[in-house]
Nucleic acid binder design. Structure first.
Lengths: 143, 143
DNA sequence: ACGTTTTCTTGAACTAGTCAAGAAAACGAC
DNA sequence: GTCGTTTTCTTGACTAGTTCAAGAAAACGT
């Protein structure tokens, strides 16, 4: 389904290394994972990988457009491989759980602010804040 | 124009103290200021105020709805007194400068995601990322 | 196989913000 | 006014998430 990690790396001009492949594989299975979760996942596959390596890999992927980083206020950043389709996110205020939401207003939605104040706008980011199902029930038991 | 700080505090049930008044005054003049900028501004007026006091004041105001906090990825949080009208923000990727944008699609815009995955959505946040005028010209001279 | 370039390891550092304990100031009742 | 309670402010240590720096190691192109 998703393109082979090795292929992806080659096409992007990045060297193929074990950590990179592992990161791609993990993120394919676990979208919206945090850097820490990625690190654990990768270590589970490869034995030991330094934290720095994970961050470097994530940065390289971001730079080359293989990955998108979302950084919800008050929560660690999360990474996803679904890119280029301008979708948005639901974020749980309590636990940070993140889900995709397709764009409401067609393809490029709120992409055009009414007045740009001279800014060169490149991207519109839409975050829906709320409580995920789990945290809703947790809230009910102990408010 | 803007309601008297003392009035505001009384109406909200908060005690009126010098730091609180100074924070409200500073933010009225400097919307989208960071906690650090607020601290400096308040210190300029009052002599010395602890960092913690500034954060406590900001938190109290947030809790009571006097203030809204925006936390653009990669930049320190910013605070604004314009609240309750669901407007959005332009943020400069480079320097973090933030400006208001009125909502594109009427009053409550993208407030309704297509599918909520069971989330109880309370708020929609829209951020337009780009380069502010200053950083555009800075970019041109040294890329 | 060789040399260059890129990536990974180790370990220290940094920023924005939080926690904790006590001193001080503001409100409400008398 | 003054007293007692409640809330706020000061000081200073601490944290999470991420980045910086230097060198060792691995991948690619020839």
């Amino acid at each position: 389904m998703s393109p082979e990690p090795r292929e992806l790396l080659k096409n992007t001009g990045l060297r193929t290394t074990a950590p990179r492949i592992a990161v791609l594989e993990w993120l394919a299975d676990h979208p919206h994972a945090t850097a820490d979760q990625v690190a654990r996942g990768v270590r589970a596959k490869l034995g030991s990988v330094s934290t720095q390596a994970v961050y470097d890999v994530l940065h390289a992927f971001q730079r080359t457009g293989l990955l998108r980083r979302i950084e919800p206020a008050g929560h660690p950043a999360r990474y996803e491989t679904r890119i280029g389709d301008n979708h948005h996110h639901l974020v749980c205020r309590r636990c940070g759980k993140t889900e995709d939401v397709d764009c409401v207003h067609g393809a490029a939605p709120c992409l055009e602010p009414s007045a740009t104040a001279g800014f060169a706008v490149e991207e519109a980011e839409v975050l829906f804040w709320g409580l995920c199902p789990d945290c809703q029930s947790a809230q009910r038991s102990q408010p």
